[in-house]
């Protein structure tokens, strides 16, 4: 069960990074949330065959990671979880869209291959942006900002409690799996015939635990409004970072930087 213990530590480690005091961590949570959402929208808005413009967006996660002193490996491990979904979603493009876009020597580069890379890049960039937001801003602060954007409290609470309960679920899996393996000599995992009962019991136990935890939270004044995470008002430097970064993101989206750099070099 070391795998599950490691997973629990990994989940917590990202949140622990949010305690740092770097320049990025000190930016107002609202600014970081707006910029992350804007970044995601702009990245997604690229056409499937426009890779050149998209690659410039790598600057955002790279700069944030450097300035925020965020180690790459913890983020990369989480990124790997998301990649298979887009990998298989994009794979079909390679098979169905075989029209050549251009040739490298005699090797045809198809539109399908380009759109495959486009999907992969979009996934990497957007997931990294969200992970960096979590690694630089505590979850209650993010929740408070989401509420201040008038997102329904019920949805914000669902997000927060789901995040909180992941480790509860893992703890329950860990103890149930140990109990199962100890009474199943030679078994390398849970047998398919027992899987239904295992998952059903896991669900019921997790419900119980989650309910108890929710009660403990309520007993200590939790009301789902995250008022304690209310930050100081935005200061001049926050506004400047917001405007300059948003301006740069828009510039990259609507101005052909690749062509500009190409002309400049020529």
């Amino acid at each position: 069960m070391t795998g599950i213990s490691e997973s629990m530590s990994t989940i917590n480690s990202l949140e622990e990074l949010a305690d740092k005091k770097t320049i990025i961590h000190q930016i107002h949570p609202r600014v970081k949330l707006i910029l992350t959402l804007l970044y995601i929208v702009l990245v997604i808005s690229y056409k499937p065959y426009d890779i050149t413009g998209l690659t410039f967006y790598a600057f955002y996660p790279i700069i944030l990671m450097v300035l925020g002193e965020i180690p790459f490996m913890p983020l990369f491990k989480r990124l790997l979880i998301a990649l298979p979904f887009s990998f298989f979603a994009g794979l079909s493009n390679i098979f169905f869209d075989r029209q050549a876009a251009f040739f490298i020597g005699s090797l045809p580069i198809t539109f399908g291959l380009i759109s495959f890379f486009s999907i992969m890049l979009k996934t990497i960039f957007t997931v990294m942006a969200v992970l960096i937001l979590i690694a630089t801003t505590s979850m209650p602060k993010i929740a408070y900002q989401l509420l201040s954007f008038k997102l329904p409290q019920m949805i914000v609470e669902q997000i927060m409690l789901t995040y909180r309960y992941i480790s509860v679920l893992l703890q329950e899996v860990s103890s149930m799996y140990t109990a199962y393996i100890l009474r199943s000599p030679g078994a390398k995992g849970i047998k398919m015939q027992d899987m239904g009962v295992f998952v059903g019991q896991l669900l019921l136990r997790s419900f119980d635990r989650a309910e108890n935890i929710y009660m403990a939270m309520k007993c200590r004044g939790y009301d789902g409004k995250f008022l304690y995470a209310k930050p100081q008002p935005m200061i001049k430097s926050d506004w400047m970072i917001l405007l300059m970064t948003a301006g740069l993101l828009f510039l990259m989206r609507f101005f052909d930087l690749g062509l500009f750099i190409g002309n400049f070099v020529r």
Binding site: N12, R164, A216, R220, Y228
Partner: peptide, 25 residues
């Protein structure tokens, strides 16, 4: 609570102890 695992849900001991006072604003 009887089971401390039900009562401790934050990632750090400090944050867990601070949860109540923070909710008291």
């Amino acid at each position: 609570f009887q089971n401390p695992d039900d009562q401790l849900f934050m990632t750090k001991v400090y944050d867990d102890v601070a949860f109540g006072p923070r909710n008291q604003l």
